[in-house]
């Protein structure tokens, strides 16, 4: 957190929520990044991510019951891919928080939270489809937008489109 900066109310709420999570999980989560546009923290120990998610959803003071969005992101410089989850307490505590989880760019995997928020089910499939990270424990880990036999993961920064798909020339 930056010192001496007056934070807006929503970020203070997010910070308060983060404190509860930090108290519980300690070093497994990174320090809180209190930026104006999207305050977030990162899960460092990725294996704890479903547990953190469940804690966030069920803790009476957090009640993050609504996952608005889960976006896959390619961190090419760090040789990592990851997800950014925008989570929110809908109708209960009215706070928002974003969580980042990263894994290795090559064959990495992230534990799935599809059992915590149903929203994550298809979004994780989409992230897998586009970035290639696996979600362990996902009930239905298949591609969702691209065909099942598509080669490569299109949203990776170094993605090269395949030459042909079932005899159809792909690049145009």
């Amino acid at each position: 957190m930056e010192e001496g900066k007056v934070l807006s109310q929503s970020i203070q709420q997010s910070a308060a929520a983060y404190v509860i999570i930090h108290d519980k999980f300690g070093e497994a989560v990174s320090p809180f990044d209190a930026n104006e546009t999207m305050p977030f923290f990162e899960v460092i120990d990725t294996s704890l991510w479903p547990e953190i998610a469940l804690f966030m959803r069920d803790h009476p003071k957090l009640q993050f019951n609504y996952m608005a969005c889960l976006s896959g992101v390619d961190y090419q410089a760090e040789e990592k891919v990851g997800i950014v989850c925008n989570i929110e307490s809908l109708g209960q505590c009215h706070h928002k928080l974003s969580v980042k989880v990263k894994c290795s760019r090559h064959g990495g995997s992230i534990p799935s939270v599809a059992c915590v928020w149903h929203t994550a089910n298809w979004h994780e499939r989409e992230a897998y489809d586009m970035f290639g990270m696996l979600f362990t424990g996902h009930p239905d880990m298949r591609r969702i937008l691209c065909p099942d036999d598509w080669e490569g993961y299109p949203l990776l920064k170094d993605y090269k489109v395949q030459e042909s798909y079932h005899g159809i020339k792909v690049p145009y």
Partner: peptide
């Protein structure tokens, strides 16, 4: 540099854009 998740109420629900 930064990230944002901006959203609005669409006729079909929440349309959000996560921009980095």
């Amino acid at each position: 540099a930064g990230e944002v998740y901006g959203r609005a109420e669409n006729p079909r629900g929440e349309l959000g854009f996560y921009i980095q």
